[in-house]
Design a protein around this nucleic acid. Sequence first.
DNA 1: CGATTCTTTGAAAACAGTCAATCTGTGTGG
DNA 2: CCACACAGATTGACTGTTTTCAAAGAATCG
Lengths: 194, 194
Amino acid sequence: MFEVFDEYLIRKQPDLTESDLAQIHAVSIFKKLRKRQYLLQEGDVSHHACFIIKGCLRNYRLSEGGVEHILKFAVENWWISDLESYNNGTPSKNNIDAIEDCDLILIEKQDFNRLTENIPSFRRFHERLTSKSVDAFQNRIISNISETAEEKYFKFISSYPDVFNRVPLHMIASYLGVTRETLSRIRINHAKRR
Amino acid sequence: MFEVFDEYLIRKQPDLTESDLAQIHAVSIFKKLRKRQYLLQEGDVSHHACFIIKGCLRNYRLSEGGVEHILKFAVENWWISDLESYNNGTPSKNNIDAIEDCDLILIEKQDFNRLTENIPSFRRFHERLTSKSVDAFQNRIISNISETAEEKYFKFISSYPDVFNRVPLHMIASYLGVTRETLSRIRINHAKRR
DNA sequence: CGATTCTTTGAAAACAGTCAATCTGTGTGG
DNA sequence: CCACACAGATTGACTGTTTTCAAAGAATCG
């Protein structure tokens, strides 16, 4: 049950001991999610950190017109949650749902905080995770404001080939901030030009 | 010298004691920056956290063509640094320079880390700061991929009136990801329509 | 005043969005 | 196994927005 999770934790933070892992296991909750099921819906408060053993999910927001705007994809060995709701205890503005059938590990916020307090290596792990996530956000913002749609698309597929191969194109369009028609034409024009 | 900083710290984290403040003062370095001077240049490694007592700065990246893309503005009572370089010790891809004459407080990374280790309230303060910053990044990404240029502009001036009033328009255009000509026309069309 | 920075303007071209239709592949129920 | 529904991808015609380039007006500062 814990193979993938343990392998991930040890790879990211090699100084975690067996006893540390046991503490982490003790508060881990398994959860399965079928394709299209929600992990979190707009208005809910996020009470859990969520690690992905298997599957693929997305975090997206609905605009007034009901259009989906995807903030984030996540696959195996990633975490997904709505950070704003989780950190502040406020109702989420976003939805998280499964793009494929998923196996997940949930950890309650209180338990997670206790882990970071009691296990210094786990705290360092978490700090590094947070700072990587900030780096990724910053680079995405630069990309958003400085690149053409075509540049964003090819950067995306080379940065996240594992996501690209598993996710419908219209969702990638939504992530990049263009319509699916525009993305379709970008691909075709690019293929023609070479 | 420390009035603004202390007032800020106590407001954000009321349980900081006099002795905590004294520890923070002990590692604080004052620095003045004239308009247009750099705090950090592309290729430098960021070794300091930087709090702004007075003035206004920006963090921006140059694209191949030499176009500036502004990641962030910061004014009094904000922090500014290049997080990617500061966290990872890698050369920065960005520049930080002063838009106005500035009074700053710098804290060396090692000293800053010691403060978070030795002062639990300061650690909590820092964690909250980080999570607020993540929230802001997420909301900016949603805004980037889902709003029109006009919506982004009016949201910006209502969210950051203090920045809007002090910063040239072409920099706001750069922050929003449109050309200065487009932003100029957005303003004019909006004024006409009402 | 002269130099620099900032903002606006105009015209053309490139780009992206909308709407409606079609095409493709997948999977489910009869 | 077939028919059908459904999700996904593409296409065309059209409209609207944004960029580009070049130029000219304001505003600011030494």
